[in-house]
Amino acid sequence: MLSVTPLSATVTDACFCHWPVETDALTRSIPDWLTIETADGDAWVTALAHTVSSVASFGVEVTKPARAVNVRTYVRGPNDQRGVRFLALFTDDALTTATAAPPLRLPYRDGVLTHETDGGGFRSRRTLDVDGQRALDLRYTPDNGEATTAPPDSLASFLVERQRYFTTDPFGTRLVGSVGHDPWPLRTVDADVQGSLLRTLGLPDPTGKPLFHYSPGTEFALAPPRPLWLD
């Protein structure tokens, strides 16, 4: 359990969908002061579909549970720090957006999200519609085995275990924020994904099949970003 922090969030029923993409094409979607980090020769874009079970400020819950999809890629900062760059975040709770977006400088966007159980032969189905188009249709059934953590230096660790993100403020100041959490507990998952998410966000098409990871959830301690030169 994390100690009381200015902002914390509990995430549950989280399914990661990772696509390999062409590095040079993806570079056009990030600021020029960041560098795409690759693994197994590929750049990667991840959609994390999950439920935000709670968001709390100094231990006081401030929102109700909400469905969410976060889209990110993997980068290094000017001093070679490893982190992520969020490309878009979607949630169906306006209060979550109002609470998190301004202090965390995150690129929240409008979208319509659903989550149903027994989704066409899978345990769960999560969908995201953007501008009237089906951007994400993710169906998954995690196994019932004991959750484990990703081995160090594995592709799973590269794709899942990040505790730093890079962003900017309205004046263009380069910022770095922290997302503290214990290692994600992971289970294998049978999953299928459809939709035009990458194309909808102006990102390059995948160069290979998606990879999936599932987690029953974890808790985050969120720190508002600060100027990069202070990191």
Results as ranks from 00 to 15, higher is better:
R134C: 05
T63A: 08
S196R: 13
I36M: 07
H181V: 08
I30T: 09
Y140A: 09
T46Y: 02
S29Y: 00
L113V: 13
F16N: 10
F212S: 08
V75Y: 00
I36Y: 04
A101T: 11
T38H: 10
D153R: 15
V62D: 02
A25W: 02
G83S: 04
D80T: 09
T114A: 10
T51A: 05
G145E: 13
N79F: 05
Y140K: 06
R187L: 13
Q81V: 01
V84L: 15
L34E: 02
L136M: 01
A47W: 02
A88V: 11
L113P: 13
T114F: 06
T12H: 00
G59E: 10
L198M: 11
R174V: 12
D129R: 15
K209Y: 05
A49E: 00
T91Q: 06
G208K: 04
L198Y: 09
R125D: 06
L197M: 10
T35H: 14
A94K: 02
D42K: 01
A39V: 11
S54R: 14
L198H: 11
R164A: 03
G121N: 07
A66S: 09
P103E: 07
S29L: 01
G41A: 13
F16C: 08
Y214A: 04
G119F: 07
Q81M: 06
N79M: 02
L128C: 02
C17Y: 09
H50T: 05
P183G: 05
H50M: 08
T46I: 01
G177M: 02
L106S: 09
L106A: 10
T5W: 09
T117M: 07
P185V: 02
T51I: 04
R123S: 15
N79G: 08
C17S: 15
D190V: 09
P206D: 03
R139K: 14
S8N: 00
R85N: 08
A100V: 14
N144H: 15
D80E: 14
P183L: 03
G208S: 06
T23L: 14
Y140T: 05
T97R: 14
A9M: 15
A221F: 08
S57H: 14
P225T: 04
C17I: 11
S57I: 05
R126L: 00
D110F: 10
A135G: 10
F86V: 07
F122Q: 06
L222C: 13
P20Q: 03
L128T: 06
E219L: 06
L48E: 02
T51L: 04
T148K: 12
D92T: 07
P216F: 12
G111V: 00
F220W: 15
D169R: 02
I30E: 03
A191R: 07
P216C: 00
C17Q: 15
Q81F: 03
A191S: 12
T173V: 06
R174L: 11
R109P: 01
V21M: 13
A101V: 12
